[in-house]
Each structure stands twice: as structure tokens, then as C-alpha cells.
Amino acid sequence: MNLEYFCVSSVTHANKAKRILQQNGIWCQMAKSDCGLGVTGCSYEIAVDEAAAPRAAWLLDAGGVHRILPQQGEWRQ
């Protein structure tokens, strides 16, 4: 499975994202590498299957999850 990463602003928004995706049947995994040094350079990342990424992005935005731009790499914005 190829993963795409969504960057979110905090642990609260990360859990909110996880809750929304799980309620909509989308597999996801939360990751955090402390102090803004994760895969994307952000503190909180939600990984999803790239096939589900477009729908996931829509759901997160519709649900009011605060996504932020990745600090490095070319991850989904």
C-alpha cells in the first residue's frame, strides 16, 4: 500500500481527523515525530492509502480539521 500523508496542526486535530476517517471507513494511521520533524516536517501526520486520499481530503476539510502545509517533501496538500 502506498501512503499519502496529511499534515494537521495538533494532536486534537489529528484525533479529530482519525475519528472522521474511521467513521467513514477509511483506514488511517496517526504518526507524530516530535517537534515538527516528521516525514512531512510537521508535528502530526495522518497516513492514508493513496487510493483513498482524495475522499479523505474532502472529508477532513468538510469536518473542519485544520490541515496545514507540509514543511518538506511533496505530500498531499
Binding site: 496542526s9 495538533s10 494532536v11 486535530h13 507524530k32
Partner: peptide
């Protein structure tokens, strides 16, 4: 400390953190 944006000395904008 809030566990986010640790490189910045500015307090994050997002609630509740």
C-alpha cells in the same frame, strides 16, 4: 510547550493547544 511547532517561539494559533 504544546507538542507542536516546536521550532517556533510563538504560541500556536489553534485551540485548544
Amino acid at each position: 510547550g504544546t507538542g507542536t511547532n516546536s521550532n517556533s517561539v510563538q504560541q500556536p494559533e489553534d485551540y485548544p493547544e
